[in-house]
Design a protein around this nucleic acid. Sequence first.
DNA 1: CCCATTTAGTTAGCTAGCCTAACTAAGTTT
DNA 2: AAACTTAGTTAGGCTAGCTAACTAAATGGG
Lengths: 151, 151
Amino acid sequence: MPRDATARPDPLEELADALHSASIHLLRRLRREDDATGLTPARLSALSVVVFGGPMRISDLARTEQVRTPTITPIIAALETDGLVVREADPRDARAWILRATPKGQKLTAQGRARRVARLAAQLRDVPAGDRAILRRAAVLMQELARKDPA
Amino acid sequence: MPRDATARPDPLEELADALHSASIHLLRRLRREDDATGLTPARLSALSVVVFGGPMRISDLARTEQVRTPTITPIIAALETDGLVVREADPRDARAWILRATPKGQKLTAQGRARRVARLAAQLRDVPAGDRAILRRAAVLMQELARKDPA
DNA sequence: CCCATTTAGTTAGCTAGCCTAACTAAGTTT
DNA sequence: AAACTTAGTTAGGCTAGCTAACTAAATGGG
């Protein structure tokens, strides 16, 4: 007889669940701070990929952001409207575009990040250095988990 | 003259940014696994709060989920339609409702969680025990960061 | 060289989740 | 009893995801 599924859950599942829940709640919290930058989280994330990753194709950005291309289209459109990125023709392929962050986009990324994370950073200041090191390492591990393909 | 904002950012801001980015990507990844449960992440999260937290008011659920009440209304409606929670009149306050998870809701939470986290749990199995401990601790820390009020 | 296929990206149209503002109804306070 | 507060819903807007269907360009086989 299978044991009650709610009793003594697999510790790995508990951990997976905890990461899921923690991510949801942290993001909901950060969304509110994001408001001050004038950019939504998805746009800020996409912009920062272009700023730090350098010029890239639209499909590259979509892949990095792990979304389908139709999802990225309006995000890029908004960034272009705000003058944060420009698109240039790809000299090697007339179907494709190269995205490039403008100086304004670079500046806003830096400022925006500073503002966006100011509150969290302030809270982190009260977190013991050991716990901060744990969070730092955890962020790397989470990115790896997110990047891994389903086997 | 202020130094270039993109050079040598505050390590605390870097950490905040890393957590933000890691949460975005991990959630986008988990969303795909969530599909198998038939419930969206927000609904699954709300249901699991009711299942594990026991009967509660709608406003309690909204507060726990850190959203406004209008956000929770359609989420509850969907869970009711699916027979996963029921609402009962609050005997102490005719304006309020008490939410209670049904047995079906409890079962689905357990199954859903197992399914949802199966992939992540499988990946976690390949993560060294030391790193798993870091993630476990990080999840707790992130929840605390999310819960803290802006000072 | 031309036709069929593939690839890059957009458009259209759907769902969900988040919000504020405005509302109803019930409890509370003066 | 009137005024205020509180619990929750409704209405309406925006963002972010998706799939399906499209245009236009690149590629490859006969």
